[in-house]
Design a protein around this nucleic acid. Structure first.
Length: 683
RNA sequence: GGGGCCGUAGCUCAAUCGGUUAGAGCAGCGGACUCAUAAUCCGUUGGUUGCCAGUUCGAGUCUGGCCGGCCCUACCA
């Protein structure tokens, strides 16, 4: 029975390039879609760029062009990157399109009519110069708890405390540097709580979500009242204006998932189909593939909206974990923050498709790209086992036809044909790694068969040429079965096999009947081993392209705009320091009780530090270029109190004041947060 | 602080409802072969299932505690 299936992958944000972390999802989804199509189902792979929000607006301003120009540019890059990895969308749209706007309006009307929308005033910091409200991460200031300057609007890196931007001391806009003003504006909220009962049932039914996700929702959200969702933004904002709320815009997270439908609508218009067939039909299964970071939106908010608007609920939300590289978070400094285009410059995308497939399961676990394992797996499985089968058979029958009758192979072909359902079920359940294991088992058996039949011996005997042809007929048919099963993962290998055997693979069931009498063409190399030098180059290139380049992600990594210059100027020592080593250095809070110029010294100031009580240290510090003695008296500093005393030209120095910076005008004394007392040890 | 997930061979992972002697692949080691991209084939080493207790005729699996890792959340579950 043929199914109608609509598949989506999460919409990448139009604020940065695609990297290999993104690719886990798009490849996982692409494999699933190709699998469904190969099985003969009607299946659409829908995606789009997510284009709205403050970040896009700000970036467009910084680059001096319109948002439309920016997102058109990004979309082009994204499309190119996806194509390089054989990720084949049926439609790749944009949330900034007429179709999406219409759908937003319709759906908004539905949730409004259902009585879910409520208006409440929201106080937020407003940048009077940039004329926009500021999201928390666009405000900086001094932490209200520990008084550390230059902290984010909602969270202090130093003392890890959370607060609201309103509490921030001396707040500044990151956009214009202006002091933000507290403004109140009306926002509209969706009262998700009204759908609580439905969401309980839908998430806990066991049919739509992985069990760990259902548990997570139950524990984190559903046990309590669901919070109202703020889904509108006052100007200025790049998005769609709301018809019944003039001057205000839908929050990007409202129109982003609707983009799935908007993009489908575009496809429908092009193909003369009705949108209802895909989104308002019990006969259509909707499947979303997403990363675990956006679980909430897709498992609570989004089903709630769909339900209210009378649209198809997802049959399944497939959630995957994050990608790590060599066991760690992707890192720019280590060169493991690898962009799709950088990868494609050096390595064959099929490798990555295969590697991801061999690691992916239906669980939410993170997936590790260990580069040694990557090479070992591709070399051993794909080149050594799979392609090798064709490589060791094809040349014996090049430019000749295969046998007209399928020879006795001891049941091998039938055995592999019987695996079709089992492998299909594994693909269907997203247990790709298990499917790959099954398929590799078939490859092992095929190699064993060839080993036993020794076609290279047969070739030498004129009287056994029919036998040789039979052996190759078996070998190449076993190879072709494997290629059918790997087809969703490796479309290029399918094409190469089509050419070799002059007969295209069209469907999953091609694995059930052998190919006979077809002419075998000259064998061409299908896949090379992974070149370790290229892997290295890719890592090197990833180190170079990022600093100063375009912001890859609106993540914490770059929202502070901290460049690598300081670290580069003074690289890490690379030497490890044990805890005991560290404890040998006795650092103390100290108060500067006296500070004087030193006659004849160009850079030095003489400081008298008090460690409390009678304990003092005489210290010469090279900070004259920046600090006046007057401003130092009374302040707290950190000093090393057990540094061996050193006789200097101007006297004995009994310690060292801690400061950072390259020198000259750039010297920054360390100071403890309020509350610290002279004499306290620094741990 | 609270919660979730996880811990099985050197590495990556299996093991149905609690059921026989915990299995594969890769790596390693020994051999064979020489068609094939230094590929392949045969054989083989390798385990206190993180630790401790408990339930049970029987525990990798269930319960409690501890250790370690990842993640989510935060004067909330």
């Amino acid at each position: 029975m043929s199914r109608r299936i609509l598949v989506t992958a999460a919409l990448p944000y139009a604020n940065g390039p695609i990297h290999i972390g993104h690719l886990v999802e798009y490849i996982q989804t692409d494999i699933w879609v190709r699998f469904q199509k190969l099985r003969g189902h009607r299946c659409l792979y829908i995606c789009a760029d997510d284009t709205h929000g403050t970040a896009i607006m700000i970036r467009a301003r910084q680059e001096g062009r319109s948002e439309e120009e920016l997102i058109a540019d990004m979309r082009e890059q994204h499309v190119r990157d996806f194509a390089a990895f054989d990720i084949e969308f049926d439609n790749y749209g944009s949330t900034h399109c007429d179709e999406n706007r219409e759908l937003c309006e319709q759906i908004w009307k539905s949730v409004t009519d259902a009585g879910l929308v409520i208006e409440k005033p929201v106080e937020q910091l407003y940048d009077p110069e940039a004329e926009t409200f500021l999201a928390d991460r666009f405000v900086k200031g001094t932490c209200p708890v520990c008084k550390t300057p230059d902290q984010n609007g909602d969270h202090c890196e130093k003392c890890l405390s959370n607060y609201t931007p309103k509490e921030l001391i001396d707040p500044k806009s990151r956009l214009s540097g202006a002091t933000p003003i507290l403004h109140e504006a009306p926002h509209r909220f969706i009262q998700l709580e009204q759908l609580h009962e439905f969401l309980d049932e839908w998430t806990q039914s066991g049919e739509h979500l992985q069990p760990e996700i259902a548990n997570y929702l139950k524990g984190h959200f559903l046990g309590d009242e669901l919070r109202d969702w703020d889904v509108t933004r006052p100007p200025a904002y790049f998005g769609f204006e709301i018809p019944d709320f003039p001057g205000n815009y839908w929050y990007v997270w409202f129109d982003a998932p609707i983009g799935y439908i908007g993009s489908t609508h575009q496809w429908c218009k092009e193909h003369g189909e009705s949108l209802d067939v895909w989104w308002r039909s019990p006969d259509c299964e909707v499947h979303h593939f997403i990363g675990k970071d956006i679980t909430y939106f897709h498992t609570l908010f989004w089903p709630g909206i769909l339900k209210t608007a009378g649209l198809n609920l997802p049959e399944k939300v497939h959630i995957h974990g994050f990608l790590t590289v060599d066991g760690e978070k992707m890192s720019k400094s280590k060169g493991t923050f690898i962009q799709a285009s950088t990868y494609a410059d050096h390595l064959n995308p099929s490798y990555l498709r295969y590697f991801f497939a061999s690691k992916l399961s239906s669980k939410v676990d993170d997936l590790d790209l260990n580069l040694d394992e990557f090479k070992a797996k591709v070399d051993s499985d794909l080149v050594g086992k799979v392609v090798n089968i064709a490589s060791r058979c094809a040349k014996f029958v090049a430019d000749q036809p295969l046998s007209n009758e399928y020879p006795d192979d001891g049941g091998l072909f039938q055995q592999a044909a019987d695996a079709a359902d089992r492998i299909a079920e594994l693909y269907e359940n997203c247990d790709y790694s298990a499917a790959i294991r099954e398929i590799m088992l078939l490859a092992d058996r095929a190699n064993q068969y060839i080993e036993a039949k020794e076609p290279w011996t047969l070739r030498k005997d004129e009287s056994r040429q029919d036998e040789l042809r039979d052996v190759c007929t078996v070998g190449l048919n076993l190879f072709r079965q494997i290629v059918v099963y790997l087809g969703p993962v490796l479309p290029r290998l399918v094409n190469q096999t089509d050419e070799l055997l002059s007969e295209p693979i069209r469907q999953w069931d091609d694995a059930r009947s052998p190919l006979l009498g077809t002419t075998v063409n000259q064998f061409q190399h299908m896949l090379k081993r992974v070149d370790p030098q290229q892997v290295e180059k890719m890592i090197d290139d990833s180190k170079e392209t990022l600093p100063g380049g375009e912001a890859p992600q609106p993540s914490t990594l770059n929202q502070y705009n901290d460049g690598p210059e300081s670290l580069a100027a003074e690289p890490m020592s690379g030497e490890e320091c044990t805890f005991d080593d560290f404890m040998k250095v006795d650092m103390r809070v100290a108060r500067v009780v006296e500070a004087n110029h030193v006659e004849g010294a160009d850079k030095l100031l003489q400081l008298t530090l008090s460690l409390g009580g009678d304990e003092t240290r005489n210290v010469f510090a090279g900070i004259k270029s920046v600090y006046d003695p007057e401003q130092l008296v009374g302040r707290l500093v950190i000093c090393c109190a057990n540094l061996a005393p050193r006789k200097m030209r101007f006297g004995l120095s009994e310690g060292m004041v801690l400061a950072s910076g390259p020198g000259g005008k750039d010297i920054f004394l360390l100071n403890p947060d309020d509350g610290a007392k002279p004499g306290m040890r620094v741990h």
